[in-house]
Structures are given as structure tokens and as C-alpha cells.
Design a protein around this nucleic acid. Structure first.
Lengths: 138, 138
DNA sequence: TGAAAAGCCTGAAGTGGCTTCAGGGTCAAG
DNA sequence: CTTGACCCTGAAGCCACTTCAGGCTTTTCA
């Protein structure tokens, strides 16, 4: 299976596949006489593994850890649990941040409901106000 | 006011200030005889403006737009409103994604509550399962 | 048979929003 | 006069890719 077919069957771009190879996340494939990469079902699995982990917001470094753990499963539970716990905490924190951001954005948006009436837009006024060392209303 | 004081009084790193200058987000400051940057209160305001926008998750490109709008406020309401609406939609979408991710991560984490019992960790088993072309349980 | 089109190759540079590093120059205090 | 705090520049590093330039291989079709 050539790189194009691997790309189609996994939905991963060719360039990304080559990038993973350079990063040693995918084992080196065989080559044809014309120097084309030749992939095995093993590669398909590994690529899917990487993409599933990435869809869970893991960094490539974390994916590397998980691949190690997967290839030597004994005793790796603690590592994997710790990784997931950390990730869950990160995502929780990020969601909280974004909720606050949503409030701020909506309040700011509320300062100018009408299209331009000639006077200065309430949003710009507020953004400007925040450049002085007073606290934002929003 | 030298760059160090500007940095202290705004909480922005010196390197970041120089970076904003390179990116034309901050006007070029005067220089002393010894080639040190000299900032005015105008620069302090502008830098605060940038950081406030950044705290609202605006990209530097968007900040550039807002600076333009701020400096020519007439008729800029529509631009500013559109930018905010887009930003609000983006953040909403991201929050939804993260909520789904949280569910996934927590379910995955639930597959291995105990430290290593010798058998293969349920999490790794599930991650592996997802490398085959079946749908994930989680 | 021959040429175009589709597919593949490599290495380097670009993305955003900074941060870090190497290798200096300037200036006030002791 | 030297130490140390402060400042300067230009280049490279970070992440996870993406894009680009320039060229090779294989297939397809006239």
C-alpha cells in the first residue's frame, strides 16, 4: 500500500504521514524499486492509534508515551492513568477559562446592539477604557 | 520610560514588547543616545489595549483590525460587531468540542480504576481497539 | 511510441505567538 | 575602574503541521 492509499484510508494528509515518520512516530516503511514508501496493515493501525490519541487532545509527546505503554503493557497502568488524569484536569481548566471568556465577550457585544449611529461605538469605548489603568466594566 | 519599566508596569515581557514592535502593533519608540527605547504614556495605553484584546482570545491580526477601528471609529461599528460575533461563535464551538472531549476522557479513564493487576490495562485495550476500523466504545 | 497526467520523492521554509539564546553594548553605583 | 543591572540585535526554537520548489516514477491514453 502506497502513501496515497494510506492517506485516503485514514483521512490523514500525505505530508502529515511523512511528518510522523520524521518524528519517529511511525516505523520506517519498506520502499519499492522506485523509492516509493510501502505500508503494511501494521502502519495503518499505528497511524489510526496516533490520530485517535490526537483527537483526545494528546500532544505528540504524549502519544509517544502511550505507544511505549502499549508496546510494553505490563506495569504501564499507572503511567496511563496519570496521563489521562492530567489531561482531564487540563481540559476542565480550559473549559472554565472559556466560560469566563464567553461571559466577557457577550457583555462586550451587548454594549453595541445597533449599527453605527454616528457616535462612538460602545465596544470601542470599553476597549479603550481598559487601556487606562481602571478595571474593565466587563 | 525604558522598556524594563514598561514591562514591569504592564506585566508584559520585554521580548514580547519587542516582538509587538517588529509586528508593527506598537509604534516605534524614541531612542536615547545609547540606543535604548524610550516609551510614552501612549505606548503604555496601546500595549494594554493589545493585552486586553489578547485576553479575549483575539489573534494579533484581529487586534490589528481593532486598533484600526479604534483610530478611525466612525463607521467601524459593523466591523467590530462582526468580529465579536465571530469570536463568540468560535468560543461556543470550542466549548462544545471540549465538553465532548471531557466525556470521552472520563469514560476512558473509567476503564482502569485500579493500579496494575498484571492483566492488560483497560485503557490501552480500548485505545488499541480504536486502531482497528471499528467504532470506539468510548 | 511518446507525451501528458497522476503520483511520489526530498529538503527547506512558513504558520502564530511568542520564548530563548548568543554575543555583545550602555550606564549608574561603589 | 570595575561590577552588575539594564539594554541591544539577529537568529533559532517551540508545536503540529502545511506549503513550496524542484525533480523523479509510473500509469494512461492517443
Amino acid at each position: 500500500m502506497q502513501i496515497g492509499e494510506l492517506a485516503r484510508s485514514t483521512g490523514v494528509k500525505i505530508e502529515t504521514i511523512r511528518y510522523y515518520e520524521r518524528e519517529h512516530l511511525l516505523p520506517l516503511p519498506q520502499r519499492t524499486e522506485g523509492n516509493y514508501r510501502l505500508y503494511s496493515p501494521r502502519h495503518v493501525e499505528q497511524l489510526r492509534f496516533i490520530r485517535y490519541c490526537r483527537s483526545l487532545d494528546m500532544s505528540l509527546e504524549e502519544v509517544r508515551l502511550l505507544i511505549e505503554a502499549r508496546d510494553a503493557p505490563a506495569g504501564s497502568c499507572l503511567t496511563v492513568n496519570a496521563l489521562l488524569d492530567e489531561k482531564i484536569a487540563e481540559v476542565d481548566a480550559r473549559v472554565n477559562e472559556l466560560h469566563k471568556l464567553q461571559d466577557q465577550l457577550r457583555q462586550l457585544r451587548g454594549l453595541c446592539r445597533q449599527p453605527d449611529q454616528g457616535e462612538i461605538c460602545g465596544i470601542l469605548a470599553e476597549l479603550n477604557r481598559c487601556t487606562e489603568s481602571r478595571k474593565p466594566v466587563v
